[in-house]
Each structure stands twice: as C-alpha cells, then as structure tokens.
Design a protein around this nucleic acid. Structure first.
Lengths: 225, 225, 225, 225
DNA sequence: CATGAATGAGGTTTCATTCAT
DNA sequence: AATGAATGAAACCTCATTCAT
C-alpha cells in the first residue's frame, strides 16, 4: 500500500521517458529535473503566467531545451501534476490507515488542505492537468478509488451523509486549500470545520439533489475556481 | 429599502460621469454602455483575459474609444463591478424581507448562487474590483452590513451556528456559483444544500476556530479561487 | 521706425483674421489668444512635442476648438512665430539706433541671444515657421533687410569682415541662444564673444568661401540644429 | 598612436558581446551588424524618430530581432555612438600628427566637420549617447584629452586664444557640421573659416567670460541644437 | 461655433514557437 | 542534444484628425 518510489528532488516519481519510450539519458534527466524544479518555484512565486523564456533563463538552459522536454505549457503542467498527484495519493493512503471511518475522512480533508496550503503550486495545479498521459489518468483513478473507499466506509458507519462522492470532497478540499494558502492554517481550519459539517450525516440530513460532479467536470471547475 | 433606480441594460445603475464629473453626452452614454455590455459578454465567454482590441472589435468601435472610457483594465472591471454589486445588494435586501430567520439566509444563499450562475461575470468579478471608488466601497459595506444583519437574526433564533460571519457566506456563495456556472443549477443546488448544513447550528456544533476573513482577504482570495 | 502695435497678451500683434479675411468675433479672438498662450507655455515647458489634446485640456477648451483655429500644428507654430518675429524685428530696429556701426552689430547679437535665452520658445520656434502667410514672409524680409543694413554699415566702416550676411548672423545668434537657454547668460556671453570675433574684420581676414545661406536654407538648418 | 582595429562595415570596432559577456554567435553578429547599418542609414535619411518596426522592415528582420539586440532606443543609439566615437578619436589622433600647432587645430576642425558632414548620423548622434557603458565613457575621455592637448599646444604657441577648451571646439564643430550636412562642403567651409577666427588668438583678444561647458552640458546642448 | 466622442493607424513591447548552429 | 537567434502575431497604448451633437 505504501508508495515504493520516494519523490526525487525533481519531483518526478519515476524516471521520465522520451518520445521513443526509452528512458532519457542521465544528463537529459538532470536537465529535465532542473527545468521542472525551476518551473515549480517560478509558478509558486509569480503564478502560472511565467514565460518559457523566463523559466529557461532561471534554469540556466536555453529555451529550446525546455521545449525539447516539454513541447508546450500543457505538458509541463502535466509533469508537475504527476508529482503532485503522487503526494495526494500518499495522503489518501495514509488516511485509509486510520481505523475510525469518520476519523479517516477528517484526516484526509485536514491533511489534504494542509498539504496544499504548504505547497502552493499543488493547490494551483493539482486538478488543472490536461487529460493527458495514461499514467496520470491511472493515478488519478487510484486516488478517486481510494477516496471513494474512504467515503463508503464512513457512509456505511453512518458518519457521512448519503450521496457524497469523491469529487465533492476533492472540490471542498481544493477550495479550503486556497483559503489556507492565502490566510494560513487557522483560516483553513475554520473552513475545514464547516466543510466537515457539510458532509456529515445528520438525522435530518436532506438528500443531495443532482449528481456528483464527474472527474472531468471537477477538473474544469477547479481551473476556474 | 427597495432600490429606486432599476439597472439599465448597460448595467450601470446611474448615468456615468466623465472626468469632470459632468454626466456624459448621450452618444457617449450609449457607447459606454455598448462597450460595457460587450465586455461583460466576452468576459463571460472567455474569462477575464480578453484584450481591449477584441472588446473594441466585438463592440464595433475603435480601441481608442474603449480607452477613452476606460483608461485601463481596472477601471473597466470596476465599472462592471458597480453593476454587479447593485444586483447583489438587491438580493440581500430581498432576503431580508423573508420573515423566517433561517429562511432568509437560505433565500440569500440560493438566490445569490443562482444569480451568479446566470451571470457568469458576476461570479468572476464581484469581489475582484480594486478597492476603488468610494461609492463602491460604500455599497460593499451596505451589503456586508445587510448580510451581517441576516446572520445575526438567524443566530439569535438559534438557526445559524455561532461565529459565522458575512465573509463566510460570501465565500461559500462564490464557490458554489462557480460550480453552478459550469454544471448548471442542479449541481449548484447540491452544494447549496451542503453549504447550508455547514453553517447551520447543531446541538453539537463545534466552535469555529480562527477568525472570519476580512473583506480585504476575501477579495484577494476570490481572485485566486 | 518703432513698432506701432504693442504685442498683446496673446502675443499676436494684430487682430487675427478668419478664413474669410473678416476679423474674428470678439470671443473667438479671446479663445484664439488663450490657446496661443497655452501652447506657448506648454511648448516652453515640455518642448515641441505636446499633443493638441493636451493643449486643449490645458486651455480649457475642446480639441475641436483648437483645430478650428489652427488646422494643423504648422499653423499654430506659424502663429506663435508671428509673435516672435515681431520681437526680433523690434530688436534689430533698436540696434539700428546705435550710432557706432560695430556697436550696433554687437547690440543686435547680444540682445538677440539674450532675448532668445529668456524666451525658450522663441529660440525653438523662430525660424521653424513654414513658408506660410504672406504677412509673415513680409516681416521676415523686413528683418533681413534691417540686419543687412546693420551689417553693410559695419562693413563700410571696416568693422565687419566682407562677405558676412544676415543669415550668418541669424545662424550664430540662434546657436548661441541654445547654449544660453541651457546654461545661462554667462555661457551665452562666452560664445557671443567668440562669434563676434568670427565676423569681425581683421587686417588678415580670409575671404569667406562659398555663399551665404539663403533664408530658406537657414530655416531648414535651424530646424535641425 | 594610430588605432589598431579598423572599424568594420557594421560599424562596430570590436565583436559585440551579449548579456553574458560572451561574444555573440556568428549569425547574431551578422544580424546585429545588419540592424545597425540599417538604423544608421534610416537615421541619416529621416532623422532620429524612426520606429523600430521600420528599422526591422528595412533590415528584413522581425521586430523581435531588433528588440533582442537593442532592448530600447537608447541602447541602439549607444551602439551607433560607439562606432562614431572611434571615428572621431581617429580624427583627433591624426590631427595630432600635424607638426604646426595651429595647423593641427585647423586640421581637426576641418576634418571633423567634413567627417560629420559625410556621415549625417555622426553629427546627430555623436554626443547624444546616454552616459552609458564605461567603455564609451573612456573613449570619450580619450577624445577630450587629445583635443585638450591639441589646444594647449596651440595656445602655448600663441595661436589659439586663452580660455578655449575642448568643449568649445566640439560645440562649434558640431554646429558647423549641421550646416555642412544640409548645404554641402562649401557652406561648411564658410563657417569653418569663421569659427577658426573665433578661437584664434589676437593681440586684442578679449578674455572669454564664464566657463567652458562641461562635457555633460555639451551633450545635453547638442541634443537640442 | 464649440465641444469632446470616435476613429484607427502606428508606435512600443512581449512571447510562444521554430530552426540554424 | 543543447542552444539561443529569429520570427511575427498580438497585446498595449497614444494621438492626429474628423464629425455628430
């Protein structure tokens, strides 16, 4: 259950592969990691509107090099996302260890928001990745599954209201994390408290109207939230 | 209590004034309204990153004309905002008419989200306006005051949990509206349901940690949400 | 010999005439003068690159009004020029009163440079006027004639070297005035001293090669100097 | 004493260096030279108010390319200036070879004016360069020193009047060159003749009042002359 | 007449992207 | 592979000028 590969400094959990699927040469690996780290930092500092030129300059490489690794902005974001998603997955899996069903949900929401708060780019990027590589798709599904398990267990135990789905949780976590990024952990905690009440089962809990968001909808929404 | 001037098609509640404070000439009024409407539409369709050139083209006027009325993006946003804020104020004031304290809160959250859903730019812009003109500042305060009254009444009646403030409501309303804009009224309703449970008083409601966001914080956060 | 019409506040020596040749209405006169004064001031303060809009705003009239009086930049410059040229003419005529021939030349160069120094726009504008209205052409000829008389007298008395013409003097005066404008009267005086030696007759004065500049050449050159 | 590096066609005496101080790539060198040559030509033909777009078009490159090499107008002017200043330095050094002290001064004024006449931009730009790079500052000082030596020698020999300084000569040379540019060598010669009489020592030469212009003043003045 | 609104060409500048070195 | 030069579209903004009010 525990993740096997520790995140590297570059933030890519596994050796990146080139166009031919062959693993990149060692120096290429290093360059890739360097660009990625630089991009992460710049995104965190100046938001997502950083030019490739700027990234290249900061990384001390040519723009061409950046383009060689990441043909467009999307793919760079994707790469960053790959890293983030691993972190998120780790969080759910940790939460699953908690034996109390409701406690597990609380743990996930809390740690998720806190993690995103500390890593601003995580909050910014996590759901923005395009519907890209299969690897990522797969990881995303793993997370969704894990969160769903978390919820089912808590719903079965009568702690979480019926109808709450993984995307609901993801949505609220993201939203709370934005507050946390801006105003610190206490503010985040305030909203975590409320959000937990929003999903908790009550004797008189109303049925949730409509349907839960699809993963795709969620992604698009989080880009605009 | 009811507003006296109905919003015009142009979205400006009152005749706009030029630099000298004199009301604009009739034709200028028309152009201004035209530009404003066009900008509103484009913003709604393509987000806030629309170029002045594009706005001008879509409005069928020269860029210079746009610049004449709105020397920079800020001032255009402000103008749109002025409109939105009037609408919002109207909503709170309507909600205040509801005699049941909790019903009033529900009415406000529901109608706020619905309103924002129908007018995408309202959701995008409403709190983003720079801390600009005194008029706007004043209107903003009026809204905050009205929402606070709404909440106090509901708290006194035991319907809303202690510690919930106007900014909490504003935050959730905005967040819900984003969902509504993307996925329609049913999805919004789903989250409205949860959010109302988040602020409702329960026998075992935990105290809210931290402090409510200041209006300034809220603004900044909503820009990033 | 002395000028008969004192310069008005507006700087136009004579009632301006409109397109039909009829003298302008009184209020039009006032507007015209106002614009002229404003333009003069702005030119003096910010150089010659001032927009018509700016002039209009500073004068408190509409751009259209400025355009009505001065269809283009040229004609505004011309109008200012008309004023300046009167001043210049006054200077030559005063110099002509000096009985000592050389002294008269000295007086003209000195006072010309000093005058231009004090009125920055005079220096900037004096020769830049397009080959415009006949009135101005005439005035210019009067000046040229007067300076020529000044020089002839001094040449006859053996004080000024042969070949020196009115345009030579005008050229040097302008050039010196630029220094004066920038660095003050002492600096101007330094160059006046040298310039006077440049045109003074010496036993061994070499013949001046080439021909004196035509008035037209001079104008063009002074625009570039 | 003679300069070791001949000015290249591109007008840059030495290989230009990029931001990192590394010499530019060969193709960049070529482009840079091309842009520089084009700019020189256009400046010569139409004065200094030529748009970067126009330069780019004339050079057959994209605007971006011009901006890459010269982030702003200043830096382009500086680059042109670097070239000019080398030419000027060469002139003084040649003049210093003349054994007759007065003849050396004459040679410098003559050749300076002639040089500037043939290269209109030299006249326009030579002193206008911003107080930029140290290299240029240094070259400028070398010129000033050389001219000063020229003058001292001539003053010691009694040919040049006391008090005349390098900036005086520079000023007059520039002024004469403007005439030359417009009206040809004969006209320039006419003024050279007079200017030389302006600085020549006479038994009765008056003391020059005030102080010579500083190099900084001179620069500013020449921009306006 | 006076006004200032409207126009759009043209300047400046940035940046994603391609491609020769 | 890595580089960074070159490109040009597109943003931004200003201003001379015309014309409806």
């Amino acid at each position: 259950m525990a993740r096997s590969t520790a995140p590297t400094a570059s933030g890519t959990g596994a050796p990146a592969v080139g166009a031919q699927g062959r693993p990149l040469r060692k120096d290429a690996q290093r360059t890739r990691a360097l660009v990625l780290d630089t991009a992460r930092t710049l995104f965190a500092e100046h938001g997502i509107d950083v030019s490739f030129d700027e990234i290249a300059r900061a990384a001390g490489v040519g723009v061409g090099t950046v383009y060689r690794r990441f043909p467009d902005r999307e793919s760079l974001i994707d790469a960053l996302f790959a890293d983030k998603i691993e972190k998120l997955l780790a969080l759910v899996e940790q939460a699953e260890q908690v034996s109390d069903p409701w406690g597990a949900v609380v743990a996930f929401v809390q740690s998720g928001a806190e993690q995103m708060r500390k890593d601003r780019a995580l909050a910014e990027v996590v759901m923005c990745a395009s519907n890209a590589q299969a690897v990522i798709e797969h990881r995303r599904d793993e997370i969704t599954d894990a969160v769903t398990r978390l919820l089912r267990r808590a719903q079965d135990s009568g702690a979480v209201r019926c109808g709450v789905e993984a995307t609901d949780l993801a949505f609220f976590s993201h939203v709370v994390s934005v507050v946390g990024v801006h105003s610190g952990p206490e503010a985040a905690q305030r909203y975590v408290t409320m959000v937990l009440d929003a999903i908790r089962a009550r004797p008189d809990s109303a049925d949730l109207p409509g349907h839960a968001l699809s993963v795709e909808d969620l992604q698009e929404i989080l880009q605009r939230v």
